[in-house]
Computed example of a mutant assay.
Amino acid sequence: MTYLNKLLGAAALLGITAFPATAETLRFSSFEPPVAHVTKEILTPWAEDVSAASNGELTIQMFPGGSLGRNPAQQLQMVEDGVADIAWVIPGYSPGRFQESTVAELPFLIPSSTVGSPAMWKMYEDGHFKGDFNKLKMLGIFVSYPNSIASTAPVEAPEDMKGMNVRAPGPTMLSAVEALGAVPVGGITGPTVAESISRGLIGATFTQWGAIETFRMGDVISHFNTAPLGATPMLVVMNRAKYDSLSDEAKAAIDKFSGAAFSERFGKSFDDNIAEARDELLAQGNITVSEPDEAQTQAWRDAVAIATEQWIEQNENGQAIYDAFTTAIEEEAARVN
Rank of each mutant, 00 (worst) to 15 (best):
Gly218Arg: 06
Ile221Lys: 00
Leu201Pro: 11
Ala194Pro: 12
Gly230Glu: 02
Asn239Gln: 00
Ile188Leu: 04
Val177Leu: 00
Val155Ser: 02
Lys242Cys: 10
Ala157Trp: 12
Val185Asp: 01
Ala241Pro: 11
Thr205Phe: 10
Trp209Pro: 04
Ala182His: 00
Met234Tyr: 11
Pro158Ala: 01
Val166Tyr: 10
Asp244Gly: 09
Ser175Asn: 15
Val220Trp: 01
Gly181Val: 02
Ser222His: 13
Pro191Ile: 00
Phe215Cys: 02
Ala252Ser: 07
Pro158Asp: 03
Val185Gly: 05
Thr214Val: 12
Ile188Gly: 02
Tyr243Pro: 09
Ala168Ile: 03
Ala252Cys: 04
Arg216Ala: 15
Ala250Gln: 01
Ala231Lys: 04
Thr207Trp: 09
His223Gly: 05
Ala241Thr: 12
Gly218Lys: 07
Ala179Ser: 08
Tyr243Asn: 05
Ala204Pro: 04
Gly210Ser: 12
Met234Thr: 12
Leu246Met: 08
Val185Gln: 06
Leu229Asp: 01
Glu213Cys: 11
Val177Tyr: 03
Glu195Ser: 13
Gly170Pro: 11
Ala153Phe: 13
Asn239His: 04
Ser196Lys: 06
Glu195Arg: 13
Leu229Tyr: 05
Glu159Val: 14
Gly203Tyr: 07
Glu249Met: 11
Leu235Asn: 08
Gly163Lys: 03
Ala182Glu: 02
Ser175Gln: 14
Lys162Glu: 12
Met238Ile: 04
Phe224Gln: 02
Ala211Thr: 13
Gly210Leu: 09
Val236Glu: 02
Val166His: 10
Ile212Val: 10
Val155His: 05
Asn225Phe: 06
Thr214Pro: 10
Gly187Ser: 02
Asp244Ala: 11
Ile188Ser: 01
Gln208Asn: 13
Leu201Gln: 14
Thr189Gln: 14
Ala250Ser: 06
Ala252Asp: 07
Trp209Lys: 05
Pro154Ser: 04
Ala227Asp: 05
Asp248Ile: 10
Leu201Asp: 14
Thr232Tyr: 10
Thr205Lys: 09
Asp244Lys: 07
Val177Ala: 02
Asp160Val: 01
Ala250Glu: 04
Ser222Arg: 14
Leu235Met: 12
Ala241Cys: 10
Thr226Leu: 08
Arg216His: 15
Val183Ser: 08
Val237His: 06
Ala179Asp: 01
Ala227Arg: 00
Ser247Ala: 08
Asn225Cys: 11
Val193Ala: 10
Ala204Tyr: 08
Ala241Glu: 14
Val183Asp: 07
Val237Tyr: 09
Leu235Val: 08
Leu174His: 05
Ala153Glu: 13
Ile202Trp: 00
Thr189Lys: 11
Pro158Cys: 06
Pro154Gln: 05
Met238Val: 01
Val236Lys: 04
Arg216Gln: 15
Met173Val: 04
Gly170Trp: 05
Ile212Lys: 02
Pro191Trp: 04
Ser222Gly: 15
Arg199Ile: 11
Arg199Tyr: 14
Thr207Asn: 06
Ile221Pro: 07
Ala153Tyr: 13
Met217Ser: 06
Arg167Pro: 12
